[in-house]
Simulated scan of single mutants.
Amino acid sequence: MPDPESYRIRGGAKRMIDVSILENPKVDAAFAFHVWPEFEYGIIGLKDGILTATSDIFRVNITGKGGHVAKPKSTNNPVLAVCDAIMQIKLIENSEPHILDIVDVDVKADAKNIIPTSGIFWGSIRTLSLETRDLLEGEILKILEDTKERYKVEYEIDFIHLDYLPVINDLNNTKHCENSASKVAIVRRLINPYFIGEDFGWFSSSGIPSTLMLLGCSPIDRIGNNELHTDNMIVDERTLQLGIDIMTDVALSYNLETNINITSGTKYEITDEAMQNTPSNTCNNSQAGDLELQEYMDIDY
């Protein structure tokens, strides 16, 4: 089993902050894109406040007393303890939105007539605040203490915080991004956060007004069948230029107080089908009814 320390990933944003990327010169704001295959090319997802979650894991090792299956009373069966602990963890209730699930179980005996000595399971915790994460970890510890007493076993647990903090979009910055993106794309205002992990959250946690935009990238025929971080994800490559041009507008208009006049080039359409297939995690876009967008090629400053 890998050393839990090998899972303690420090995202790129944290490493940048550790080497003083926010100082000299001082950073006033941070903006970023994440490609988003749920949306068709030409759609930008924006949300005020919390956009993404923490992403953490835990490993539990339960040790009992193994032996021959013909003499179960002489053993403290860790298989039963592991199963019961998993079921109790799945029953944890918390009023705050979260995801708590078991992702891997490893309980192996040397032979089919042997009760093993130990068993290991892994879980994932995703929350929208560090406070909720702490509460859930406390509940897990209570369950393991109860399991220890009930089955006469011992346990070890590693809570592995992967250094992905919630992305909290700044209200003013997000409006600024909407102004830039809506010149050339359909802006979708999101209602609910996503339980993905994203290290960009370190910038907002450092006190930097930040906004992460979701850059729709799917070809129209892939909507609903194009998943992030899978081997079958397909990107409409026009997304690259669209993202560059929107971010150019965001940066120049923010830092230089300059409005970019985007000269129209080739026209394309966001189809009615794409609008209907857009996930329900959206409300009215800032250009409702205007399905014709302009794919721009020339920028005048």
Score class of each variant (00 low, 15 high):
residue 7 Y to W: 08
residue 9 I to P: 07
residue 11 G to N: 02
residue 13 A to R: 05
residue 14 K to A: 12
residue 18 D to N: 04
residue 20 S to I: 00
residue 30 A to K: 03
residue 41 Y to Q: 07
residue 53 A to E: 12
residue 58 F to D: 08
residue 64 G to Q: 13
residue 65 K to P: 06
residue 74 S to Q: 11
residue 87 M to T: 13
residue 95 S to T: 15
residue 100 L to V: 11
residue 101 D to P: 01
residue 115 I to Y: 02
residue 127 T to R: 05
residue 132 T to Y: 04
residue 138 G to T: 02
residue 140 I to Q: 11
residue 145 E to R: 09
residue 148 K to M: 13
residue 153 V to I: 00
residue 156 E to K: 11
residue 157 I to Y: 06
residue 158 D to S: 04
residue 158 D to Q: 04
residue 171 L to V: 09
residue 179 N to D: 12
residue 180 S to E: 10
residue 181 A to H: 10
residue 186 I to F: 09
residue 193 P to W: 00
residue 207 G to N: 05
residue 208 I to F: 03
residue 209 P to N: 02
residue 213 M to R: 03
residue 222 R to W: 07
residue 222 R to S: 11
residue 222 R to N: 15
residue 224 G to N: 09
residue 224 G to M: 03
residue 225 N to D: 11
residue 233 M to I: 00
residue 235 V to H: 07
residue 242 L to W: 11
residue 244 I to W: 05
residue 247 M to C: 04
residue 250 V to S: 03
residue 264 S to E: 15
residue 267 K to W: 04
residue 272 D to T: 14
residue 273 E to M: 11
residue 276 Q to K: 15
residue 279 P to E: 08
residue 283 C to Q: 14
residue 286 S to W: 05
residue 288 A to K: 06
residue 290 D to C: 00
residue 291 L to I: 07
residue 292 E to H: 12
residue 294 Q to G: 13
residue 299 I to P: 02
